[in-house]
Structures are given as structure tokens and as C-alpha cells.
Amino acid sequence: MSVRLATKAIEEFGHHKRTLLAPILRLATLLALCLILTLLSENFLTWNNIINVLRQSTMLVVIGLGLTAVVLTAGIDLSVGGVLALVGCLTAQLLRSGVPIPLAMLIGIGVGAILGYFNGILVGIIGLPPFVATYGTKWIAEGLALILMQGQIIFGLPKAFRWIGAGYIWIIPAPIIITAVLALIFHILLSKTTIGYDIYALGTNREAAFYSGINVRAVSLLVYTLSGITAAIAGLLMTARLDAAEVGMGEPFLMQGMASVVMGGTSLMGGVGSIGGTIIGALILTLVVNGLNLLGISSLVHNIVTGGVILLAVFGDSVLRKYSE
């Protein structure tokens, strides 16, 4: 009996060890990166710089929240950049024509939700491959933004609106607080609720989930809608921070958002991953660019370094996954 208990204890420890190893290593990578940058540049470990990095990472984190939910179901959402741009442009237009700020923001988020829901219908009900369906939506969203803007760039938005992207609560930038709250909500949703359970179950084995009575269509609709909403919120934050909106503003975020999710250990095959991972992924990505800037390295090589870091992270993750089997 005591032998059985002992083997059970060892096994359980082994289980936790194996599942904890990846997140610990990811966190260690992040801290190591901070340490290296602290040693290399005296400007790194300053309040201003830290706050700056966090603020820069908020966009990636917010987009990454909804994306994580989608990728957990073995899906992908290529429309986030397009949705971000459309919502940014639309909200800016509304604000300029005098629509009250809360209403304009609500309409913006609503449009994001509708486009996300549209993705959900294409993928979950009609059954198109997510890659193709959301790619189509991306073009539609960007096309709508083009029509809306007629080649213009909008500047000069109301101060109260700009606060969400550029303001402060006490000494902490508002976007950081907003992002933290959203991240907490998503973390709880995914890890502690029945809805989160359904998302993981769907991503692990869609058929078994369906046979077990999980409403797989509703789950697909939900995750893509969530992704549309977070992309829309990112669009609002971006517009407020830049105090401007233009058609191309979403371009860099799709691939960086996906990179954050994947570097955070979320499997493209679905069923494995977490919000915590995505946040770390976004921070690492932001830190690399920040570090290169601090060290005065030409922005021409930034992309190469970023690409290398992404490959390294994903490679490390796959090695780790093999090891833990």
C-alpha cells in the first residue's frame, strides 16, 4: 500500500514537473533577456523604459488574447489586422463627426464582434478552413476601411478618447491597466470556466467533444467573436495612442500577434496553451525590439533578429514537448 502511495506521489510530481517545465523555462527566457539587457545598457532598467516596454506590448497582448482562444480550438484568425484597422478608422471617423465617445467605442467593438461572428459562421457552421475564411474577412475589413478613409489620414481626436491609449491612472499608463484587466478576464475564462473547458476539449478532439454533447458550433462562434472583439479593442487603443487612424495601421500586428501566441507555447494543433504564455510571448517579442533600439542597432536588422528569436522559441518549445513525452 505504502509502495503504491509512493509511486503515485512520484507520478503526480512527475506530471506536474513535466507540465510546469515549459512555462518555467519561458519565464526564465524572459528574465534572462531582461538580465542581459540590464547588463548591456544602463538605460534598460529604468522606470521609463520598463513602462515603455509594457505599453508597447499591450497591443500584442490584447490581440493575442482572442487569438489564443482561436488557436486553442486548432483555428487561426488572419483577419485581426484588418479588423483592427477598420475599427480604428471607423471609430476615428465617428468621433470626428461628433458621435459621443462611449457610443463610438461601442460601435467599434460591435463591428469587431460582427466580423468575428462572421468568421465563426464561415468556420464553425459552413465548415470552411479557418485559414482561408479569415483571410477573406481580412480583405473585406481592409477594403471597408479603404472606402471609409478615401485615402485620408485622420488626426486630432478628442482628448477624453486619447486617454485610453495615452493617459495615466496614477503613474501607470491606462492601456497597461486596461490590458491587465482584459488578460485577467481571459485567463479566468479559459482556465476556470465551463466555456474554457469546452474550448480546450474542442481543440483536443473535436469529434469526441461533439459526441460528448459539447455544442461545437457555439464554441467556434464564440472564439472567433472574442478574437474580433479583442482585435477591435486593440484598434481603439492604437488609434487613441497615435491620435490618428489610417488604413495600414493593422498591418504589422497579425503576424506579431500570432508569433506571441505561438512563442507562448500555444500549439497550432489546438488544445494546448495559455494566456500567461501569450503574455510572455508578447513581452519577449517587444523586449527584443526594445533591446535592439537601446543598443543602437540599425532598425534594418530588427526583422532578421525578430525572425530568429521566433524560430528559436518555437524550436525550443518543440524540443521541450518531445522531451516531456
Binding site: K192, T193, T194, I195, G196, Y197, D198, Y200, A201, T204, N205, E207, A208, A209, Y211, S212, G213, I214, G271, V272
Partner: peptide, 28 residues
């Protein structure tokens, strides 16, 4: 393997798969 189980989930999450909402409304 195809229809009955989520092989990459632990025993716990498989056992609860068809009865989750009988036990929990929202928080697990």
C-alpha cells in the same frame, strides 16, 4: 480513440466531458 476520448487530455478532463454542466454552471 476517435470519438470517445480526448487522448491528449488527462483522465480527469475526459471523465467530466459529458457531464461538466451537470456539476458546474460557469466556474469549475
Amino acid at each position: 480513440k476517435r470519438y470517445g476520448l480526448a487522448l491528449n487530455m488527462p483522465v480527469t478532463k475526459n471523465v467530466i466531458m459529458a457531464s461538466l454542466r451537470r456539476h458546474f454552471r460557469f466556474m469549475i
